[in-house]
């Protein structure tokens, strides 16, 4: 039944499918490490998708599109940042509102872009590596964004665990009152983290509209932002595991598509449900297994910081 699936192509499409999740999840990881729960990832992704698509089409340059997507996501996330950090609104409600707002404004912005093909993002020529049998097809024949997302994960790991600024950021997420008492500017750190998260989500969205699909349709993120949020929990707030989680979820998505194409006996609806069902199952298992998993969770996550005195 699955004989029609070529493993090398499967891995290749897995990496492509996982890349938007990697980008969005690694951004959200930094946001949550700073103690902020931004549930608006889906909204920021789709705004990034349309910003990137529109600019890429207008300028003819996919790179300009990705830059615009990052900027769009960051701007939208800063709206969330100002509301929650400066005006002290509730993070959960504001995050949900951000998703709805993002879905709405993106379909408004995208009205004249439906049905257009964006400029293509070329594959990176890795010379002899791309010509390797199997590995060449599976790993070394992708566009630059795929490699960028992996490099970004490594950079975020280094930042969080090795740099002074990353230590400050973790301290803010761990105990914002103590951080304030030490003279760390809690709100400034969090706003920067939120903007970074927004930019990453925007990039993830643009990857969907410019490379993976590639075209613009309303609501095209189809829950990818929610899966990214789940991946952060799944990865226990660690960069490496977040990457692993994103590839796992990407794999499930690709596999179900391939099974559909291969004419699986299971009804299509069940197959398309599977990534989301697995998301829920993983979250349940993770939260049931207390102790160690919780160690990674920033202690001030989602709590409102109000500087006394």
């Amino acid at each position: 039944m699955t004989g029609a699936i070529d493993p090398a192509l499967l891995i290749a499409s897995l990496m492509v499918a996982a890349t938007p999740l990697v980008l969005a999840a690694i951004g959200e990881l930094v946001v949550e490490k700073a103690g902020v729960l931004n549930l608006g990832v889906e909204g920021m992704m789709i705004v990034g998708a349309i910003c990137g698509f529109a600019i890429a089409v207008e300028s003819g340059s996919p790179l300009a599109g990705f830059v615009a997507a990052a900027a769009g996501g960051a701007v939208l996330s800063l709206l969330f940042g100002v509301l929650t950090q400066v005006l002290l609104s509730n993070q959960v409600a504001t995050g949900l509102a951000l998703t709805l707002f993002g879905l709405g404004i993106s379909s408004l912005m995208g009205q004249s872009y439906v049905g257009i093909k964006p400029p293509g993002t070329p594959r990176l020529d890795l010379g002899p590596l791309s010509d390797l049998p199997f590995l060449g097809t599976a790993l070394f024949s992708h566009d630059w964004v795929v490699y960028f997302s992996i490099a970004l994960t490594a950079a975020v790991w280094w930042f969080l665990n090795r740099s002074r600024a990353g230590l400050t950021l973790r301290a803010v997420g761990e105990n914002h009152d103590a951080a304030h008492a030490l003279g760390i500017k809690v709100i400034a750190v969090r706003l920067m983290a939120i903007a970074f998260g927004g930019a990453c989500a925007g990039l993830g969205g643009a990857y969907l509209s410019l490379v993976r699909v590639p075209q613009w349709t309303e609501g095209m993120t189809a829950g990818a932002g929610w899966i990214a949020l789940a991946i952060v929990v799944f990865g226990a707030w660690r960069a490496g595991r977040v990457l692993l989680g994103a590839y796992l979820f990407g794999g499930v998505t690709v596999l179900q598509l391939n099974l559909q194409a291969a004419g699986s006996a299971l009804p299509v609806e069940y197959l398309s449900m599977s990534p989301y069902l697995i998301t829920i199952a993983v979250l349940v298992v993770m939260s049931a297994r207390r102790g160690r998993a919780r160690l990674g969770a920033p202690a001030s996550l989602g709590r409102v910081f109000h500087a006394a005195s």
Binding site: L167, R170, N175, A178, A179, L295
Partner: peptide, 18 residues
């Protein structure tokens, strides 16, 4: 401080560095 301004999930050296 009276209420320790420490970070539970970080180690001693990281807390001192902060």
């Amino acid at each position: 401080f009276q209420h320790f301004s420490l970070f539970d999930a970080l180690d001693v050296a990281e807390n001192v560095a902060l």
